[in-house]
Nucleic acid binder design. Structure first.
Lengths: 294, 294
DNA sequence: GGACATTACGTGTTACGTAAAAATG
DNA sequence: CATTTTTACGTAACACGTAATGTCC
């Protein structure tokens, strides 16, 4: 039961093919076959059905563990090596679209760029998963992520990272201007909207799963899916009545086709957090964190 | 960067000795030395100071990752093998003292014992860490743990386990009868007590850390530590004025020397959760879970 | 000097690649 | 029949044990 057997198992399951996994991992097909056989022999369970290659029930269960394990091993490696690595002349910050919009991060990075001209600053806008994963794996020095939560509650992140809260703003329901509720009282309870049509836009807005968890209400079923990261597109979908979505009011002020109605109950905030592994002293990453966190 | 290098590293760090770790892991001292050398070579960092053997800064950081990684690997192994293993004639349930007191678990187990006389039922009372860990590792089939949280909020468990809430009761401050607050209004706000003397009894009562997290208030400093698992002893310590503690009121009714004053604010509950990995259908564990959960 | 960690060296196992066989659609 | 996985086998690397050497209280 070795770690890199898990890695090839995960790769085979993801790619759905022994040969493809072998190519990705720089192995022979035969080697991959042997590794899977060894793993199945150790556990005395069939993990994959062949032709087509897909995980069995036991394999699926193992995947649920293996993916976080491998992520954490990469994080451990990145964390430890970062402690000794020379302070790089490079700073990569990954952030979700809303984290960028709701924090002073991009402005602070611009400031840092002028103050340290020799520093190579890179910004990566990505989904929440990508931000957490690339920060944990050390592909980014810092991450900025967002989500909804009760006031002062930290976000629940999957990856093993330190986190500090940066900002909290109220959340609002984005409605088409001609929606019946748009002219209603300026604040609204979410419980009345659990049965409405919602847009699931996990890369931009809070996920509906997070919404259910934060409110404790089932419902919030998706009528429309949007996998992109563009806020404008999301507004247009909302304006055209494809469903509701939850965004900070300040983002909607310049959008004439939609109205933002603040959520009164339950008490929720849209929260931005800075996440990071080890921050070596005197590193650009530590400088940025110090600039942005107070 | 192999998993079992991590295992020997953790063992060496815990035991504080290469030879002791070698004895525990059934290796030669030389083998352990080589493994640590290999790990340090891979990471290009010194992980341990020798004589005395203690982790360096980098080593300490690695430990923070390594321990959960190894726990999760054991959990993965236990989970997958449990899916195929024959339904055992044995049922081991680990629980914290308060989980036992606040749930019908022991009664249900007694019932199960009479209904399935051939079943070998074992109860293990242990600390929260032990319950979580032994359940994750498969040493126990099920665990019952407790803690304080906001109403309907799940407990935050470290181990990778499924959890279902079983019970929630109000929390009360346990005071000596002659305490000034004992005769005061029957409900009290916790914020007034942040600066009081508290007893840290992590195995029985909620940990003070959990208290700070749940209330968002710093403070709750310990004036007295109790590592045991006995509720009566904790009551005596509270009665003698060594400090306050937080327990469900119903446990104090038969204790003449202490009074329980319910906590009014913030809204907190003492919550009991059933935790488990995979529950094979038709297993005694699944039967118990079905009996106790609705 | 004694306990403990490291280095040196020999050996058995393992893990991979090449190549041939089997299986599946 | 072609593509993909499995099996067979040779080789090279590795990881461990034994034993000798080094090092710190």
């Amino acid at each position: 039961v070795d770690a890199h057997l898990l890695r090839t198992f995960v790769t085979v399951a993801r790619r759905g093919s022994f040969s493809a996994a072998a190519a990705e991992l720089q192995y022979t097909q035969a080697a991959v076959s042997q590794q899977i056989a060894a793993l199945e022999g150790d556990l005395k369970v069939t993990l994959l059905r062949r032709r087509p290659v897909e995980p069995t029930e036991a394999g699926a269960r193992l995947l649920e563990h293996a993916v976080p394990i491998l992520l954490r091993m990469d994080a451990a490696l990145a964390d430890v090596t970062r402690m000794t690595a020379a302070p790089a002349a490079q700073l990569t910050v990954a952030m979700t679209p809303l984290a960028a919009a709701l924090s002073a991060a991009t402005a602070t990075l611009a400031e840092l760029r002028t103050r340290l001209p020799r520093l190579d600053v890179t910004i990566r806008i990505a989904s929440r998963e990508d931000v957490a994963e690339s920060t944990a794996r050390g592909k980014a020095d810092l991450g900025l992520t967002d989500g909804i939560a009760a006031p002062n509650d930290p976000l629940q992140l999957l990856a093993p990272l330190s986190a500090t809260g940066l900002a909290e703003v109220g959340v609002s329901v984005i409605l088409p201007c001609d929606h019946p509720l748009a002219t209603a009282p300026s604040r609204i309870g979410l419980s009345h909207l659990a049965d409405a049509r919602w847009i699931d836009a996990p890369a931009v807005a809070p996920t509906l799963t997070a919404l259910r968890r934060a409110t404790g209400i089932e419902g919030f079923r998706a009528a429309c899916w949007y996998d992109g990261t563009d806020t404008l597109t999301l507004f247009r979908l909302a304006a055209e009545g494809h469903g509701l979505t939850l965004l900070p009011a300040q983002l909607a002020v310049n959008e004439p086709s939609v109205t933002a109605v603040q959520v009164r109950e339950p008490r929720l905030v849209h929260r931005v957090e800075l996440v990071h592994g080890v921050l070596p002293a005197d590193s650009p990453a530590a400088a940025f964190a110090a600039l942005i966190s107070p």
